[in-house]
Simulated assay, not measured.
Amino acid sequence: MERRKFIKNLAATAVTGSILTGTITETMASKKEKEVIAHYVLFWLKDDLTKQEVNDFTGFFEELKSIPNIKSLHYGPPANTHQRDVVDNSFSYNLLVYFDTMEDVDTYENHPIHLAAIDKYSKNWTKVVVHDSVIKM
């Protein structure tokens, strides 16, 4: 009698295990890595700007926040990291914007708010470098 219970339980466990394993495998296979576009911009501001003008430059980033399709927007000055050959903290501000698609990047680049902000604040910088990357999340 005990042997029958053992075999019955073993069979039930095997079926349940294969169902669960199949479900987990299917879920893992169907879950693809999500990709986003990272738009990373470095700004070098003019040396003759006052401290207040440098601080006021953050208005540029705040204006950009209202552009549609931005997933997230972050900005700030360089960190006070240790000096090493690979570290370049010569920039004044950086901007990091995430987008879901390249179409969203295109909308951002050509959006009137973006173009107006560039027109308004470009007098403050001497150099801008843009890096766009596809990031796996």
Rank of each mutant, 00 (worst) to 15 (best):
Y93K: 01
I37V: 15
F99I: 08
K127A: 09
K34D: 14
V41P: 02
E33N: 15
V130N: 12
D88F: 05
K46G: 07
V86G: 05
T126H: 03
V54M: 03
H114L: 11
L10G: 15
E63R: 13
N9P: 07
K65F: 04
I7G: 12
N94Q: 03
H74C: 06
V130M: 14
D56M: 00
W44A: 07
L96W: 07
L20R: 02
K34R: 15
G22T: 02
F99M: 10
L96H: 07
I7F: 15
W125C: 04
L95I: 07
A117T: 13
N9M: 13
K127Q: 11
H114K: 15
A12R: 03
I118Y: 06
S30L: 03
I24W: 05
M1G: 14
P68W: 12
E33Y: 13
V36W: 09
F91V: 09
K34W: 05
Q83A: 09
F61D: 06
N94L: 05
K71E: 12
L96S: 06
F61G: 13
K46M: 09
D119C: 03
F57K: 02
Y108I: 05
D48C: 06
G76P: 10
I70R: 08
F43T: 01
T58D: 07
G17S: 11
D132S: 09
N69I: 08
T81D: 00
H74W: 12
A12G: 00
T13K: 00
K31H: 10
I19E: 05
D88E: 12
T107S: 08
K65E: 08
I19R: 08
L73G: 05
K120C: 08
N55S: 04
